[in-house]
């Protein structure tokens, strides 16, 4: 292995100093194992499951595919920042209320994907919702309650129904 690296990452508005990291570490690994932010989950390490979804400079990406050391200078936002006071965002609350959580391993990634969708489009159609979360694999729910959670969140946010 090559010599360890030191660098800084801006995560959830806070500058974190990463010390002695291996160059090949993904942002997912650094968030989870070095910065104590395990909300992004590791289920495939190849961008196929969406469990590790975070925002990098306002773009929803799989943190497993971001080389952590190359994310210096970006603004990273994780699921942990959605409700800093222990409260829930409206999307998180909708997931709880709609029964969209079973084992919950995919849930933080799905919450991030839905937050991103609704920030871009406050009134998506059901087909658009399905496309928006098609990169987030869930093995427990069959997505039924997840889609319903989006319906609930949209209804509460805008009063509109997902067509």
């Amino acid at each position: 292995m090559t010599a360890p690296e030191d660098y800084d990452l801006l995560v959830n508005g806070t500058e974190h100093h990463v010390v002695g990291a291996w160059i090949g570490e993904s942002l997912l690994y650094v968030l989870r194992e070095r910065l104590g932010l395990p909300g992004a989950k590791n289920a495939c390490e190849q961008g196929e499951c969406g469990s590790c979804s975070v925002m990098v400079d306002d773009r929803l990406v799989c943190s497993c595919l971001v080389l952590a050391a190359s994310a210096v200078g970006t603004a990273i936002t994780t699921v942990e920042s959605l409700a800093p006071d222990g409260a829930l965002s409206d999307v998180q609350q909708a997931f709880v209320d709609a029964g969209a959580v079973q084992c919950g391993f995919c849930t933080p990634g799905l919450v991030m994907a839905v937050e991103d969708l609704l920030a871009r489009d406050a009134a998506p159609t059901e087909l658009e919702v399905r496309e928006a979360i098609s990169g987030n694999l869930c093995r427990c729910t069959g997505y039924g309650r997840v889609i319903d959670a989006v319906r609930v969140a949209v209804r509460r946010r805008t009063g509109a129904e997902v067509a």
Binding site: S26, E45, Q46, G47, L65, V66, L67, A71
Partner: peptide, 23 residues
């Protein structure tokens, strides 16, 4: 974008001695 290279790094199929990021 990392979507190809990082898969290989994550699975140990490629071990870069150096990386030049175009970000």
């Amino acid at each position: 974008g990392g979507t190809d290279l990082m898969v290989e790094v994550n699975f140990g199929h490629r071990r870069p001695e150096a990386v030049l990021s175009l970000a």
